[in-house]
Nucleic acid binder design. Sequence first.
DNA 1: GCGCTATAGTTGCGTGTGCAACAATTTATA
DNA 2: TATAAATTGTTGCACACGCAACTATAGCGC
Lengths: 152, 152
Amino acid sequence: MGIKDDAVEVRAQGWRTLAALHGLIESSMEKSLQNAAKLSVVEFTVLDALARQDGWHMRMQQLGRATALSPSATTRLVNRLEDRGLLTRILCADDRRGIYTELTPAGSELLVMARPVHDEALECALAEAAQLPELAPLVTALPQLHAVVPAT
Amino acid sequence: MGIKDDAVEVRAQGWRTLAALHGLIESSMEKSLQNAAKLSVVEFTVLDALARQDGWHMRMQQLGRATALSPSATTRLVNRLEDRGLLTRILCADDRRGIYTELTPAGSELLVMARPVHDEALECALAEAAQLPELAPLVTALPQLHAVVPAT
DNA sequence: GCGCTATAGTTGCGTGTGCAACAATTTATA
DNA sequence: TATAAATTGTTGCACACGCAACTATAGCGC
């Protein structure tokens, strides 16, 4: 069963690499965003996800899935951002259990300010990771996943 | 500067994919490990890293880097595992600031028990992620990173 | 040898998180 | 229609985390 064992080991190895790169990027980005916009990475993720929907609302549950957060954490995350005036809750009429969230102008504004910070921290962290032999392959592979087919 | 903007967007896209897959795997694995061995993912990571050193010690700082954890979190993580008798602190003689950590027999034993759980949760989470169109490419790419060159 | 800076690890404190229990609403079933 | 079951979001609670401040040891310059 050497073949099967190999598959398990290869998966584990891939997961370790993934987790290591994720941790590196996340902690680096956390500091930059906190520093520049008083935003944590998850908070930025929520604002970014909302902006990406462009005018569309998102339900709490969707936000939870987008951030891999529990329902309770999602509630409090939205609370924090709402208290800061970055988004608003909107009860939706057709399903009165559901709650939509939407960016406020202030939220969009802060996002515009924070995005360059996010992008630069990401580029910086990736460059650093590329130096490490165990992370370099993943760093290389990452942009090729969704590579834009070059227009001829 | 469309080209440069593209690079930024491609990186951001890759990061979102990475983060999403990481979150999916981590929360799934967290439940399995917690359930089967009362271990969190980071705790498992530490035990696994120590076992992988096979007889070698690891310093607190190395553990911190291996888990992307702050020094204080590392201290408490080691405290928890030490209190459970899964590892031991060893002050090293040559640098009396440094502290080595080593698996106990009980730690090795628990790890042997937990590893299959870890591996199965990983396989399961990856299978689930492969169903999602935005994650599938990364799931496919992951095992190819460190693919064993098949012996002829 | 003596002080100064740097490094390794630990604690106080505030905060974000998950779990379990809950309230409110919708959907299914009899 | 009434009643049960499922779904959506919120709160109490315990706990793990990061930051800043701290102690202890090492290394450097004089």
